[in-house]
């Protein structure tokens, strides 16, 4: 199969047929990669919902050189040979990304100071990079009371951006899904029907795929800010999952166990609840070494580096 040539922000890359623009951009890496709030490469059918990854296709393909009439979701649009894509270099794309960030924050409580996700939150990253510095809304936000959806997971619906990732995890990783999206529009919510508890060996992965602080680990809540903990790669012999995890330690204490996330915040492997919630002693684990977190969020405190923007990049906001 011949490779397809696609140009993203003036950088050329060759990919196999069937690759999305998003994954072609990830092959290039760096700042030409559009942000993704709902797309998750390990979950089938994810993406297309949050609209933060919209890009402009300036040239459809070498056969059909016309531009696409609307901005397209890069996570769900396949590349064509000779396609020319503008992400960082298009003022229209950057303007829209600002707007989408504003939409996502419209009903978000902005309670970062008391949110466990702060420091590793995709919405924080997104608004840091693309958001306005002031709010243009004076309306009341939609509010829900936080609820326990099961023994181990806390749901703060106020913070949810309805990316559907946790629904897909339950559908695709666990035996049975007992939660889903109820209602519609901005009043829809993630919920378990009739107070059913999420109780499954792999339910903890819902916490890891949540891009915001809507789903948090009840065994870690309010123990520490993430940037005061140190991440270490570790593994153990586990019969249920691969057992490859990250331990978030404070001194000798294991405060939290999560899966290993790549630079796009996606899990390399899903892990079981036993590894995540039940093994919190250093003796349970073989520690491999410190884990480097590449994302430019608060967790990499004091390591802010200026984004390496492509040529002709447009300033955001």
């Amino acid at each position: 199969m011949p490779l397809l040539k696609v140009t993203i922000d003036n950088i050329e890359v060759e990919v196999e047929a069937g690759t999305t623009i998003m994954n072609a951009a990830r092959k290039i890496g760096g700042s030409v990669v559009p942000p993704a709030m709902c797309y998750y490469s390990k979950l089938e059918g994810s993406g297309g919902k949050c609209r933060t990854c919209l890009v402009k296709v300036a040239k459809g393909s070498s056969k059909d050189t016309r531009p696409m009439p609307k901005l397209v979701a890069s996570c769900r649009t396949l590349v064509q040979d000779g396609m020319v894509v503008e992400n960082r270099t298009s003022p229209e794309v950057m303007e829209n990304r600002r707007a989408i960030t504003e939409f996502l924050l419209l009903n978000h409580p902005l309670d970062c100071p008391v949110c466990d996700q702060a420091g590793e939150c995709h919405l924080q990253d997104l608004s840091y990079e693309h958001g306005l510095e002031e709010t243009r809304t004076e309306e009341d936000r939609r509010t829900f009371e936080p609820v326990d959806i099961g023994e181990l997971i806390k749901l703060h619906m106020n913070r949810c951006i309805l990316c559907y990732r946790c629904v897909m995890v339950a559908d695709q990783i666990t035996d049975k899904r007992v939660h889903g999206v109820l209602g519609r529009g901005d009043h829809s919510e993630i919920s378990t029907q009739i107070a059913k508890a999420v109780d499954n060996d792999f339910s903890g992965n819902m916490i890891d795929v949540c891009p915001v602080g809507a789903l948090t680990d009840k065994t870690f809540r309010f123990k520490s800010r993430v940037w005061f903990t140190k991440p270490f790669d570790a593994h153990r012999g586990c019969t249920k999952c691969g057992g490859k995890t990250v331990l978030w330690m404070k001194g000798d204490e294991v405060l939290r166990v999560t899966g290993r996330k790549d630079k796009y915040g996606e899990l390399e492997e899903f892990i079981c609840n036993s590894c995540r919630f039940e093994h919190k002693e250093t003796a349970d684990w073989v520690i491999e070494g410190a884990r480097n977190i590449e994302r430019h969020s608060v967790i990499s405190q004091n390591h802010y580096e200026k984004l390496d923007l492509p040529e002709n990049a447009v300033e955001g906001k």
Partner: peptide
């Protein structure tokens, strides 16, 4: 439209209510 938006994608979900 606010009432009928399915809530799947963010511009429509948030924008119609706003």
């Amino acid at each position: 439209y606010h009432h009928e938006s399915c809530g799947q994608c963010s511009p429509c979900r948030e924008g119609t209510g706003w």
